[in-house]
Nucleic acid binder design. Structure first.
Lengths: 352, 352
DNA sequence: ATCATGTTGTACAGATATTGTATAAGGAAG
DNA sequence: CTTCCTTATACAATATCTGTACAACATGAT
């Protein structure tokens, strides 16, 4: 799974970069780089037949980690140990990730003890206030518009924890934080947009790639309401991706009239309609209008669901509000929990 | 000169180019080209019966890929391996972007005719009604919601032609087509959104990756008006990416008040404000209101540009409309042509 | 405080590699 | 005949390699 989802960044696993390039990129003198290697063995770049060093992208990443530690005040001599610790952690995480991906395969195919596995996977969330630390780091990176750092952090996080948890425990809260910040202090709204765009690009790529690689059933994902909901929509859809479904994001501006045609063409197995958090309630014009609009929406959704021959799920904020009205055959309501969502979806779709 | 043209044109029709042409187009000294071929086997152009080299379009592409890698910092001796690696990875993350990076080399070698190079490169667009064929194929794929086919097509196109040309000659027209289609027949709007999302994810990933790898100056890219402008914005920004700039997309909803703060934090070298095509004029409420709003916008932009200490470019539809008002020190207007845009931006930023 | 020792970035020197370009001698194109 | 292209060899300017050394500074013991 790590391999699959994560190599958005590592353009070249092998070493291609000569020392001058690495020196330029990292800002570390070439002489110093050699000294570090010789003295502390911080990295072991490949060599050409004639002995010239060939650094890989990962080597560069390591060097940047070293620099981060240096900034923190760790002396270069100790960095070696610190790094060892971290890589041990990573290796552990790799193992858990792999077991996860193993589950992924099971999911769509035959699998009885869904419950245990799923639950276990989520309970094993190796998180505490660690998320706080990450959250702060992310906000720092956003604050200084440091794209490299942002990528580095996400790279690390994505390779350490399951996407489901990251989405819920870190990315969504951080994004919400930034949005609130932006609403309070308009001059900071650049931060929100910066991170929003980053996530859009980062996770968007992930989506495309995973959906192309996955073999599971095809789920269409759309939102209504906030047109800025794209990223939220994708964050919501991440768990589906990691469980093997092919998820096609359709965004938030599709008129309901177009849905039947779209679905029949797309050959999908299910539709999920997601309502973003009502946030700033978008248009400040109508407060009650909003609610009537919502119920109107619900009526439309029902109609659509009725006319379709496939399961339709709804998720997001509305679900609680009008939960009782929903008892259609193929209109299923999703709770807020990713575990539950997956259980319900798996169950419903395996009936087909 | 005549002779040159005569030589150039018939040759280009057949798709074979003598070495001098290739040298001019790519900016690589003919001697060097031969050396690369001999020493590293980077390409093996056809030969005339008497042994003269005949480069195909593909060969030129190869060379441009090489240049791309050189710009990334790979040493020429390793490019061969890097290329092998890249072609092995039929990986979304490894979309090879070809296009000139002659600038780098030009600085090393002495080269006068920058102008010619750029112009020629664009004129040589290996396109005719070939774009029509592609366009139809794309529309077919969208129509049947065939993500795999869509990806296959883009992969092929992206690896065959320079992104600048693809963006202008294919992607933008197709997207516009779909939008018009959607406006006329609402039930087809799913198609538009499907392709929109695809491009968002596909090109978004490209953006992130390239911006992380590029070393050039940092350009912030924002739009105003249509909030669906993200994809258009990115399509507009593609040429910048392929020319080594780091391009940070900020989207379309940033209030002007937030710009100064954002720019000072982001440490960018320039700002580009892009106005999407007025399309369906978004809100059908105010027609005249729209224009006053636009001029208001212009005033704001001017104010912002004045207060900033970096070049501010504006591009898109408005530029023609109010072109005459713009004579600020650091507010530069971009024409519709990617060549011109790049020339102007390069020139302005190299002054800094 | 003093002296010894360790750390760390950088410098130097001599050898080898890399890489763009130059030259020479001859064939090909027009 | 002149210009371009071919190959092969050569060359010069950098880059990089290794190993040793040094200077600035920190640590620690006497």
């Amino acid at each position: 799974m790590k391999e699959n989802l994560d190599n958005l960044l590592p353009a070249s696993e092998e070493g291609f970069y000569p020392i001058r390039t690495v020196s330029e990129v990292t800002g570390v003198n070439a002489i110093t780089l050699r000294a570090w290697e010789r003295r502390y063995g911080l990295f072991k770049p490949e060599r050409t037949p004639k002995g010239h060093r060939l650094y890989s992208q990962q080597d560069i990443l390591r060097i940047q980690q070293v620099l981060q530690l240096l900034e923190k005040g760790v002396s270069i001599g100790r960095v070696s140990n610190a790094l060892k610790n971290e890589t041990e952690l990573e290796d552990l995480a790799d193992i858990t990730m792999q077991s996860n991906s193993g589950k992924t395969l099971n999911k769509n195919s035959h699998n009885k003890n869904n419950d245990n596995e799923l639950t276990k996977q989520f309970k094993e969330a190796p998180s505490e206030d660690q998320w706080k630390t990450y959250s702060e780091k992310l906000l720092d990176a956003v604050n200084s518009y440091d794209l490299e750092q942002l990528e580095r952090l996400h790279h690390e996080i994505f390779s350490l924890y399951p996407l489901e948890i990251i989405s819920r425990s870190l990315l969504r809260p951080v994004l919400t934080d930034l949005r609130n910040q932006a609403e309070q202090l308009q001059s900071l709204s650049g931060n929100y947009h910066f991170y929003w765009q980053f996530l859009q690009q980062r996770i968007g790529g992930l989506f495309l790639k995973s959906t192309l690689q996955n073999r599971g059933k095809k789920i269409l994902l759309m939102a209504y309401g906030d047109s800025k909901a794209n990223v939220e929509l994708m964050l919501f859809g991440l768990p589906l991706l990691t469980h093997g479904y092919r998820v096609v994001v359709l965004g938030s501006d599709i008129p309901f009239d177009a849905i039947p045609m779209t679905l029949s063409r797309a050959g999908s197995d299910a539709l999920i309609i997601y309502s973003a958090a009502p946030v700033s309630q978008a248009s400040p014009e109508s407060d009650q209008g909003g609610s009537t609009q919502t119920t109107e929406m619900m009526v439309s959704i029902k109609a659509v669901a009725d006319s379709l021959k496939m399961p339709v799920f709804i998720a997001g904020e509305h679900s609680e509000a009008e939960s009782k009205e929903l008892d259609e055959t193929n209109l299923v309501q999703l709770t807020d929990s990713a575990i539950e969502q997956l259980k319900v979806i798996d169950a419903t779709l395996s009936k087909e």
